[in-house]
């Protein structure tokens, strides 16, 4: 499996993602420059976290027009796996690869560990987990409040496209467990074809004991499990 990780101006989690793929999965990874037009044979594309273009205009709004996004969108249309983490999730929403939008948190920038519950395991970024599994990993964002109209939210719920939800220690999606005012405690979603997945929490920062949690590993292992299936 070869994973291409796009570096936009202002990305800052691409090396963490590279480390997760290369050192924890033992797979090949390559950093892709946003101005290139070549995914270099990547099976999976990761849009990493950071502050692309300084979050100017709206988070992800300018990065989504970076040259390489043409190839990323074509890859997604072919059924290729795309994972957007944090700013990458924002970019994927802006590009229309994922539904909804990520607005300013209702309580400012949040940098803290959260617990998320895996709602569905039929995506390439959740396949190695079990449904209902609770995972601890950090969030670090100011614009993570997932927003869509009620009809869209109902469709996402009905089609099983809400993949990760913020929950409390008992696994319940309570208001107290909601770190940013996101609708229905949504932390991550997938597209209708289920090959594009976006989430605000950072699994690549929860890979080894030094990080304080190793719960991100199972999400990266999902990529491998899917590639080998």
């Amino acid at each position: 499996m070869k994973v291409g990780i796009v570096r936009f101006p202002g990305s800052n989690c691409e090396d963490d993602a590279w480390h997760a793929v290369v050192d924890h999965l033992g797979e090949e990874a390559v950093i892709l420059w946003h101005k290139d037009h070549d995914l270099q044979g990547s099976d999976v594309v990761i849009l990493p976290g950071g502050f692309s273009y300084g979050d100017y205009l709206r988070s992800g709004a300018i990065a989504r027009f970076s040259p390489i996004m043409n190839e990323v969108e074509a890859h997604a249309q072919r059924g290729g796996i795309v994972v957007g983490i944090c700013n990458g999730f924002q970019i994927a929403c802006e590009a229309g690869l994922l539904p909804g939008a990520l607005l300013r948190n209702d309580r400012g920038y949040r940098s803290m560990p959260v617990t998320i519950r895996v709602e569905h395991t039929d995506t390439a970024f959740s396949a190695a987990a079990h449904a209902g599994q609770c995972l601890t990993m950090p969030i670090a964002h100011g614009d993570g409040r997932f927003t869509a109209d009620d009809a869209t939210l109902d469709r996402l719920e009905g089609e099983g496209q809400v993949i990760f939800r913020y929950v409390d220690a008992a696994g319940h999606p309570t208001d107290a467990a909601n770190p940013n005012g996101t609708m229905r405690n949504i932390a991550g979603v997938c597209n209708a074809a289920r090959n594009v997945i976006g989430l605000m929490p950072h699994p690549e920062r929860a890979m080894e004991p030094l990080h304080g949690s190793t719960d991100g590993l199972v999400l990266f292992q999902s990529l491998l499990a899917t590639a080998r299936a």
């Binding site: 709004a61 909804g100 607005l103 927003t147």
Partner: peptide, 8 residues
Amino acid sequence: KLLANPVT
């Protein structure tokens, strides 16, 4: 296309 987000 760019300046406003049609979703929000």
